[in-house]
Simulated scan of single mutants.
Amino acid sequence: MKNYPDIKIDGFISIAGFVNANFKPNITIEEFGKITMTLIDDNFSTVVYGINGTINFRTFKPMSDEFRAFKIGEAALIAPEYRKSNFKSIDLADFFSTLSIPTLNIIGEKDALVPLEYNLYFANLAKNGEKIIYKNIGHSPPWEDTKSTTSDIARFASNI
C-alpha cells in the first residue's frame, strides 16, 4: 500500500496486530531471545526445537495436533538464509494513521506475542477503523475461533 499508492484498496484487515520497530512481545526478552536464537542454528533438529518453542506462544487455548503440525511444517520450509538474515523493523504507525479506508483489527485478548495494549494502539490509529477483541484467544484467532473470525471478516467485507 505504501509502495503503490495508486492501487485501489477498498479495505484492510489486520489479524493479531503488527510487528513494528518498537515491538515488545508479552514474553520476556530472555525467553524470546532464547527461542529465536535456535531458529538460526545450523543444526536442523535445533531449528525444529526452536520452531516448536515459538509455536507454543501462538495460541491461548490448547493447540490442536493439526495446527501444531501445520505451523512446524510451514516454518521448517523457511530457507536457512532467510532465518539467519537480519531484517530491519520499520515504524508503521505514521503510515497506518494516514489510512482512511475501512479497517478491521481482529485482536486476541490473550496474545502472548503481540500485547493487547500494543494491538489497541494500532487499532486506534485507524481513521475509519473497527476493532474486535476476542476473549480468551491468543495470537491465532482464525485457528482458535474459526467461526467468529470467518463471520467477522465476511461481515466486514460485505460492508465495503
Rank of each mutant, 00 (worst) to 15 (best):
T38K: 15
T149A: 11
T150W: 11
P62H: 07
Y4F: 12
R58Y: 10
F44A: 12
F96T: 08
G53Q: 10
I15T: 03
F70L: 11
I13P: 09
I101S: 09
K147R: 09
F32A: 15
T150N: 11
Y121F: 14
I78E: 03
T28F: 08
K135N: 10
L125V: 00
I72A: 02
F122T: 04
I51V: 13
K61R: 13
K84S: 07
V114H: 10
T28R: 06
D91I: 06
N20C: 12
K61W: 00
K8T: 07
N105K: 05
D152S: 08
V48A: 00
S140W: 00
V114G: 09
D65F: 03
G73W: 00
S89P: 15
E74H: 01
K110Q: 10
E74R: 03
D111K: 03
G50A: 07
T150H: 08
G138E: 04
S148L: 06
F122A: 08
Y4M: 11
P5M: 08
G129L: 13
T59N: 12
A123F: 06
E130Y: 03
R83A: 05
E74P: 01
P80W: 15
L39Q: 05
I7W: 08
A157E: 07
P25K: 11
N136L: 03
K135E: 12
A157S: 12
V48Y: 01
N124T: 03
I78P: 00
A112Y: 11
E144A: 15
A79H: 14
N3D: 07
F57N: 04
L39V: 08
D41K: 09
Y49I: 07
P80I: 15
S45E: 09
E31L: 09
A21S: 15
K147Q: 07
T38R: 12
N20P: 11
G17H: 14
F12P: 03
T54P: 04
D91G: 06
F156H: 00
A93Q: 01
F23Y: 15
G138W: 00
F67R: 04
I13K: 09
P141F: 09
K2M: 04
R155I: 06
K2A: 09
Y121D: 00
L77G: 13
G33I: 01
K88D: 12
T149R: 01
A76Q: 04
K127D: 04
D65P: 06
I40F: 03
P102L: 11
S14G: 14
D111Y: 02
I55T: 05
P62N: 02
N52I: 04
A154F: 10
I35A: 15
E81L: 13
K135Q: 14
